[in-house]
């Protein structure tokens, strides 16, 4: 197996999925590192150097909102899904489920 080809395809496949996973996880408020742990707990490993900038991009797109707040005497930036982010997440999840069902059918037929 050509590892380079596999790595590139895997990267492409994961990119969109990670965004959906992050949006879904942020229906509950989290700060950066707690989000990493939550995703890992669900079996989704993600580089911190990928996740933290992704959070900022999603916030710039209006899908997340954030605020600095103190927890355990330390300031932390908490993120949660915005109203617009919630609506987009619903559409994305619908798309995801349709894709998943289609792929399942294709794989089973093959």
């Amino acid at each position: 197996m050509d590892n380079d080809v596999f790595d590139n395809l895997r990267l492409e496949l994961r990119r969109g999925c990670l965004t959906v996973a992050v949006l879904a996880q942020l229906r509950t408020e989290q700060y950066g590192y707690s989000l990493v742990k939550a995703l890992v707990d669900h079996g989704l490993d993600i580089d911190q150097s990928t996740l933290y900038p992704l959070l900022r991009r999603l916030e710039n797109q209006g899908l997340l909102v954030s605020e600095w707040r103190e927890e355990n005497k330390r300031g932390k930036r908490f993120y949660r899904l915005s109203e617009e982010g919630g609506a987009i997440l619903e559409h994305l999840l619908g798309e995801w489920q349709a894709l998943n069902a289609s792929i399942d059918r294709i794989v089973q037929e093959a």
């Binding site: 700060y31 590192y33 911190q48 930036r77």
Partner: peptide, 8 residues
């Protein structure tokens, strides 16, 4: 933010 996350 990065500092707080790494420190955590």
């Amino acid at each position: 933010e990065l500092e707080e996350n790494i420190q955590a």
